[in-house]
Write a protein that binds this DNA or RNA. Structure first.
Lengths: 341, 341
DNA sequence: CTGTTAGCGCTTTCAA
DNA sequence: TTGAAAGCGCTAACAG
């Protein structure tokens, strides 16, 4: 059943012309006589010709594939970013090869190395919480492969463009919003301490309390340590079941934490927002469905994906000699008010 | 900055041996003298050698990439399937190239064609609701590229393996469960009518009603027609706002529909499950967080991904001459009981 | 155990 | 406007 694919040579032979001419004709190279070109197109179609991408890539040195590495698939934020990347990339004739580092530095390195084998023209990466050192990324860049980083960047990488949001500012403004609503007992639910974005969101929380002279109370603070959805649930339930004081507000570092907090609080008999206000982070859809709907910091995920792709593709199109400006792009967030506050 | 990559030739020259030997040594081919092999490894490392995947692929005829086409990214079901595929594929040294057909037949075709250019060794595809004809898939198979289909398969494709769940049975059992709870006024919320899985889920609903002599009431039936999250919400709100009779149960064809129904009903003052029971379809996480938690038909999404990948990779490893058995694999679903019923 | 050589399918000078 | 030929980097059959 498996037939040999038709290639340029087959068309050339049938038409009694050279491979080069066929190649040029198919390329719409103007240096081919229109009549020849037409004949080539006709027979190519008739024979069911399909160019071999691999051969093209080998000879041209470009694959038109962008490698994307995210810490995990099951987080709407990353999926939205990928969607944004995909949209932009497709418009510019690039495909995307996504892989997950599964929150592991080792996997991140492996993925990077596998991309280094020439499969991709450039790389988009969101570092894991474990990623402390950045030489693996630096190595890639030194080999001349453009890299754009987004989210969770612990350390500036020379030669890479960064796309981020200002996590500290965003959380500061959310917490300040709660304070202005006369909340005094504001709980904080963060994620793994090692992750830069969570560190920054925590900083914003502290800063807001400090500014408004509210004492920090450790009993109100939870840093979730699990990387797994199921355990997050348990951690948060535990936290609120045992909390010795009643919070009048909760600031959560992800949508999911916020929703889990709401669920737990409702089950404990709290009224939202009467007894306690809740704010989430991300605004990736679920907050709108929950009853009551959740106030969130909206993170421009799709746009972040588009931006990241745009920056990478721009770099891919730059003349090699030009030393391009590597920049840090900051995207805006905003607080979306709903029923939980 | 962009340095020329080191290749086999460079290593060969430095060691004064042939390229072939270097290639074999790196391959751990036993026909190379251990001492030679070691020297090769050392210098390869020292020189920072990195094999060129594209060249390898061209000469070996395999890319070790699996192309995956899903109707959309922003549906947890598909992401879970992709996660399953990724897990299995990675263990077997395959990478996955995901693209979305964005619910469009034309995009599906385009993606397929782009994969036909030799970039992928095999294809995993979930057809869109628009996909009525399957010649584009048949064409691919005829070219000798293995294809595995999953979910929403309107028509059996010759030569392709299919992985599905029995949507009609699953929804039948869910609706029957409601009937046995003495529900008489069971609303149905389905998706676009063109989609096979929704058709089947509707059939199951009808069948259960029929079996238990409950008259079908069109006023209780909604087929959502939008492909966009935002409009789904509006459609479902509209439906319940205007419904002329009070349902005592709702069977929804996706988790999202179920959650939106619960939200709307709660906002209308219904008590769940006292006034109305709700069952969703999928069980992809959110149902557990909602208050009340939602009873769902659990669909084995991750497992489906693994299975689909396994079947494809098996096929890729089959000897070409062997005409492989193409099968239809049916995975089991189950009803997960929670607070909404 | 190692080297020679002929591809894999396409692009791209260089010549004609 | 076209053709010949040299790669792209690696694999594998064949010969020694």
């Amino acid at each position: 059943m498996k037939k040999r694919r038709v290639k340029l040579e087959d068309i050339a032979r049938k038409l009694n012309i050279s491979i080069a001419t066929v190649s040029r004709a198919l390329d719409k190279n103007p240096r081919v006589k229109p009549s020849t070109r037409e004949k080539v197109f006709e027979t190519a179609n008739a024979m069911g010709y399909m160019p071999n991408q691999i051969a093209k890539s080998l000879s041209s040195g470009k694959t038109n594939i962008i490698g994307v590495i995210i810490p995990r698939y099951d987080e709407p934020f990353f999926i939205e970013v990928c969607r944004g990347i995909d949209h932009y990339a497709r418009e510019h004739h690039y495909k995307i090869l996504i892989s997950s580092s599964r929150n592991s530095f080792e996997f991140e390195r492996e993925n990077l190395i596998s991309y280094e084998k020439g499969l991709v023209d450039g790389i988009i990466l969101s570092p894991t919480h474990e990623t402390e050192t950045f030489i693996h990324i630096q190595n890639i860049i030194n080999k001349g492969i453009p890299v754009v980083l987004f989210d969770n960047i612990k350390q500036k990488v020379n030669g890479a463009t960064h796309v981020i949001i200002e996590d500290d500012k965003a959380s500061f403004s959310a917490v300040e919003f709660l304070v202005k609503k006369r909340k005094k007992t504001i709980a904080f639910i963060g994620g793994i301490k090692e992750k830069k974005v969570f560190q920054d969101r925590f900083k914003g929380y502290l800063k807001a309390l400090k500014k408004h002279n509210i004492a920090v109370d450790d009993r109100l603070i939870l840093h979730c340590s699990s990387l797994d959805r199921e355990y997050e649930d348990a951690e948060i339930q535990n936290f609120f079941n045992r909390i010795p004081i009643q919070p009048d507000a909760v600031f959560a570092c992800t949508d999911n934490y916020g929703l889990l907090a709401m669920k737990t609080l409702l089950n404990l008999g709290y009224k939202i927002p009467e007894d306690v206000s809740v704010i989430g982070f991300g605004d990736l859809g679920l907050g709108q469905i929950f009853v009551p709907s959740m106030t969130c910091i909206a993170q421009p995920s799709f746009e972040m994906g588009q931006k990241v792709a745009e920056l990478l593709i721009d770099q891919l199109h730059e003349i090699d000699d030009v030393v391009p400006q590597k920049k840090v792009i900051k995207l805006d967030t905003k607080l979306v008010l709903r029923d939980s506050t």
